[in-house]
């Protein structure tokens, strides 16, 4: 099953492209790393998958549908640093948000939803932090809570925007372990990072972008010194 198929796609905001010439196909159970310098368009590409950035050209298919319709099968994990640390909400409640779409507008939260949230928090190793405020957790723990929120929605494709930014070693290991488990169980995975070592370690496919797509394929080829030099200093 193809989770994602982009053919000659340009993505951007308000009609102006940020990233062009994207040709990607991602199958279930595969891990794709988006690599490129800051401002290369990595976040924009990830956001376009869930319909938050515009597809300005080409055809973009998410599980064979348009991004707006395919996104219900996707889990999106934003950067933890962008969120308000003062917000009055506990880690457990944040994870429960992942169930909200499933719960719908009129049904109350059921025990099954709370159990799913607890299980997700358990998977990232933070089961005993459910009652703590999100803002008092460390950067790595926050990122794990956001990952758990995406897991609680039981997605078939997971999208992570710079999941290792400002994350401690323990949290990084915990996140990597969860990601391996997920893909082994058939979830497709797309993550952006500017850490080349991590990209080589985690991904079985890589895509190098900087304003346009420079290379895509096996990490050993895409992340070779020659291609990287070319893309980083165009």
């Amino acid at each position: 099953m193809t989770a994602l198929r982009y053919t000659g796609v340009s993505v951007g905001y308000q009609g102006s492209p940020v990233l062009t010439g994207v040709n990607l196909a991602l199958r279930a159970g595969r891990r794709l790393a988006l690599v490129g310098p800051n401002g290369a368009g990595k976040s924009t590409l990830i956001r376009s998958v869930v319909g938050l950035a515009e597809v300005l050209g080409g055809t973009a298919q998410v599980f064979g549908r348009s991004p707006e319709r395919g996104r219900e099968l996707c889990g999106y994990v934003p950067q933890a640093g962008d969120l308000d640390a003062d917000f009055p909400v506990t880690a457990g409640q944040v994870v429960l948000m992942g169930r909200y779409r499933r719960i719908g507008w009129f049904r109350p939260t059921r025990a099954a939803d709370r159990r799913a949230a607890r299980d997700a928090l358990d998977r990232v190793g933070l089961a005993d932090h459910a009652g703590r405020r999100y803002g008092v957790l460390s950067g790595g723990q926050r990122q794990r809570v956001l990952l758990a929120r995406a897991l609680a929605a039981e997605p078939r494709m997971l999208l992570l925007d710079e999941p290792f930014n400002g994350v401690d070693a323990v949290s990084q290991e915990a996140i990597l372990a969860v990601l391996r488990d997920l893909t082994a169980a058939g979830t497709a995975l797309m993550l952006s990072t500017h850490d080349l070592r991590l990209a080589r370690e985690v991904a079985d496919e890589a895509c190098l972008v900087n304003g346009r797509q420079w290379a895509a394929g096996p990490p050993s080829e895409v992340l070779s010194d020659a291609t990287l030099r070319e893309a980083y200093a165009p």
Binding site: R47, L52, R71, Y76, Q93, M97, Y100, Y134, L146
Partner: peptide, 15 residues
């Protein structure tokens, strides 16, 4: 609440 805490993820979830 979701939108207030994390507008981007709420939009990604389809709100």
């Amino acid at each position: 609440l979701f939108r207030a805490f994390d507008p981007v993820a709420a939009a990604a979830a389809g709100y």
